[in-house]
């Protein structure tokens, strides 16, 4: 019941949000200077040529008219045609989405593993030197943004000590015929360990760059939450039952302490997805973010619109997932009507 209501409510707000995003993007990219059509044509094109092409793409109409035309297309699944590649936006964008999704999810997994371990260790050895070390590490990790981590990793492991891939998504030499763009997912399903190894090898550096700041946030927040939980009566009672400190932390405290962390991780994960735009560029990773930068450079208005809408949709999906998880993990909400 609670789940269904959360879901329906979220569906309505999602539609409103996406509409709002569409309006803003539509207006903003038409207000900033730079004529996409003029950029497409070779130098020396006449005013007439430009006007003709503009009419072809509908840029001669008012913004409101353009928006209505665009929206009626979107409702039918047609996001327009990319100016720079002359291909349908929907196809281009969906083709790139899996690469970005895989990178984001692997980054999230890294962040949860690293941050979770730090939080658990910090709680286990709280009020001692070990906790101090963890606090310092988390503080440092957090004070450097993801793209700078990207540069640092490239310098360290691409230049100084070149042991990891710092460019691309997969080694061309592998020459695999994938039937979807979800390379990693497919490789896992097909149990192609050599391919998995290669894909993870390529993802490692960009994923770490994205994951480090989020790991630090998780470490700090979850540790704080765990330490507060450790004072509660049910934890003390578990201690008298003969459980070791480690078991008390993971079994009794953790399931309750993750709840406040979960909400924040949801919000931070959307930031992480946003971070892929620059990180993908930095590591020449062929995802949505990399495509977004090209689209902006080329003033490819339909493509920019499509990418932004897709990112917005992703963000709302993440938030929805967090809301559902929160209800699922919290028995007090699960049974509520």
């Amino acid at each position: 019941m609670a789940l269904l209501r959360t879901f329906l409510l979220r569906l309505v707000t999602t539609i409103i949000t996406l509409f709002g995003v569409a309006v803003i993007v539509f207006v903003v990219i038409r207000v900033v200077p730079g004529n996409p059509i003029a950029m497409m044509l070779p130098p020396g094109a006449t005013e007439d040529d430009i006007a003709q092409l503009q009419a072809l793409y509908g840029f001669d109409k008012s913004i409101l008219e353009q928006f209505i035309i665009w929206l009626s297309g979107v409702v039918q699944g047609d996001f327009g045609t990319s100016i720079s590649t002359r291909q349908p936006v929907a196809g281009l964008v969906l083709n790139r989405l899996p690469a970005t999704l895989e990178l984001s999810i692997i980054s999230l997994i890294f962040a949860v593993l690293m941050g979770g371990t730090m939080a658990l260790l910090g709680t286990r050895y709280r009020d001692g030197k070990a906790e101090g070390v963890i606090d310092v590490i988390a503080g440092m990790a957090l004070s450097i943004p993801d793209f700078l981590w990207g540069l640092i990793l490239i310098l360290l492991f691409g230049v100084l000590w070149p042991v990891f891939h710092i460019s691309g998504r997969i080694s061309p030499a592998l020459n695999i015929d994938f039937s979807t763009q979800f390379y990693l997912f497919e490789a896992i399903l097909r149990l192609r360990f050599d391919v998995i190894y290669d894909l993870i090898g390529h993802m490692l550096m960009p994923a770490l760059a994205l994951a480090i700041p989020l790991a630090a946030i998780i470490a700090q927040l979850l540790k704080q939450s765990l330490k507060e939980t450790m004072h509660l009566d049910y934890v003390t009672l578990a201690r008298t039952k003969g459980y070791s400190e480690g078991k008390v932390i993971t079994r009794e405290a953790l399931p309750n302490a993750v709840l406040p962390t979960l909400t924040l991780v949801g919000v931070q994960f959307t930031f992480l997805i946003g971070g892929t735009v620059i990180i993908e560029r930095l590591f020449s990773y062929e995802g949505l973010g990399n495509m977004a930068i090209d689209a902006v450079i080329n003033r490819d208005l339909p493509l920019i619109q499509g990418i932004v809408i897709l990112f917005a949709l992703l963000f709302t999906l993440v938030n929805l997932t967090v809301d559902i998880l929160y209800v699922v993990l919290n028995p007090r909400l699960r049974n509520a009507r």
Partner: peptide
């Protein structure tokens, strides 16, 4: 410490003061 913990867990038990906070809410 580990021996003490196990020994206490095996032969002693606590009835706590506040039943509202002494049970784990998520279990």
């Amino acid at each position: 410490p580990s021996q003490r913990r196990q020994r206490i867990g095996a032969i002693a038990a606590l009835i706590p003061q506040d039943p509202l906070t002494a049970l784990n809410p998520s279990k």
